[in-house]
């Protein structure tokens, strides 16, 4: 008995041995159906919640990182400071302008005597 023929016999016997004990196709199809139901039940709400959370995080990041966000507001002097500067030179320039405006406002409210005399 050569090995190839013998292999064929073993293969046939092994297939017969297990095929007789295997459940019907219905059993395997029920697993596929169950997988489909689980996917709809578990994955869809999960995706919805994940989408909402991602949306909230995006909005939060945009709010924090927005470049023209108001950082200070002095409403009692009718003076609004808006920080939109990017370089240090620009920042100093803006600060000087704001300082001059503030000084002018103070001078109008509390003028120095020599200013009044003039």
């Amino acid at each position: 008995m050569d090995d190839k023929y013998f292999d064929k016999l073993i293969r046939r016997a092994e297939k017969e041995r297990w095929e007789a004990q295997c459940p019907s196709d219905d059993f395997f199809l029920s697993i596929a159906t169950d997988a489909m139901h689980r996917r709809r039940r578990v994955f869809s709400p999960f995706r919805l919640v994940a989408g909402l959370a991602l949306g909230l995080i995006t909005v939060g990041c945009l709010f924090l990182l927005w470049p023209t966000r108001k950082s200070a507001e002095v409403s009692s002097y009718n003076f609004t400071y808006v920080e939109t500067v990017k370089t240090s030179e620009e920042r100093i320039e803006r600060f000087e302008e704001s300082n001059a405006e503030l000084r002018a406002s103070i001078d109008r409210i509390l003028p120095f005597p020599e200013t009044v005399a003039q």
């Binding site: 059993f27 395997f28 199809l29 596929a32």
Partner: peptide, 8 residues
């Protein structure tokens, strides 16, 4: 297909 092919 997976269930029917590889299930047994």
């Amino acid at each position: 297909i997976t269930s029917l092919t590889y299930g047994p």
